[in-house]
Amino acid sequence: MTAETRTPLLPARRSGRVKGLAKRFGTEEVWAKATAPVALLAIVILFSIASPRFFTAANLSGMLADSTIPVVLALGATFAVALAGIDLSLAATVALGSVTMGLAYQQGWPLIVCVLVAIATGVAVGAFNGVFVGWVRIPDFIVTLGTLSLVMGLALILSTGVPVQMREPALTFISTQSLFGIRYNILIAIGIAVILHVVLFHTRFGTHLLAVGDNADAAKAMGLKVARIKLAGYMLCGTMGGVAAVLLTSYIGSSQPAANTDYLLKAIAAVVLGGVSLFGGRATIIGPVLGAILLTFLQSGLTLLGVSAFYSPLVIGIVVIAAATLMRGRK
């Protein structure tokens, strides 16, 4: 992409194309982009050798469907992290979204309205985070830690801790039926990923989001509305929490008042694996998607090999720290 117009100008750059290429391979950017796909490929190959049941259509389709919620949450987390922020309330938002959806369902509202209620809940939580990060200027870590507890509490209070059964054929359809062997829920997640890719790389908002994440002062000097852009980023992140709530409710068939912190861990892990800079300003959409799929495959593969489920958080933790170290070491 950049090969055609490299004019060497300073003496240090005059050592020819080979060195330039080697330099490019050594850059952090290349490593960040390559980590998720290479690791995913390695894991697929390793598990395929280790277990004959891994590389089968049924298992692959099932694992992809299981990646749905991690993928959607990783997409949301990408926008917070690209802003040089973080959203710790993401998993709690999923719980609250599923609770409000259940409440709407109990009111006898049409299913589509229940779905919109869940998504609106996510938008509202994101807006709350965005306002406190953008205008009140409290560090993102503190704001979303507070929101995590606040939202978790709200979900328990509103639901009194009791799940609402939602046995709607239209709802279970997306988690059980497939198109060409691929489950509808992961197809929805991929559809959202495509839209968010366009948002990030083909709209002014996407460019401005990265600019704010990279250097908020420079962005301000160029006339960008920093607080407003942060608000929009956190709202997008919250929206993905709401969407994940719908997909989770569809998958389980009932609302889920208790937050599953494993989701938060996986979302952030997928973002790191996907090469999104934790210091903001650099992000891709495909990276976190592959990262989320990778982590789900890793978990399923270990289960398939008979490794106790207790080991999977340990393995995920190791993978994430290793990936982060690899990218950091190349600076």
């Binding site: 002014r204 401005h208 002062d217 420079a218 000097a221 160029m222 006339g223 650099r282």
Partner: peptide, 22 residues
Amino acid sequence: VYQDLALSDQLSVWQNMFMSRE
């Protein structure tokens, strides 16, 4: 052109040149 340049380091040259006026 301010002394600190107001550039977004991780964005490309062209993105910086069109920043906020895309």
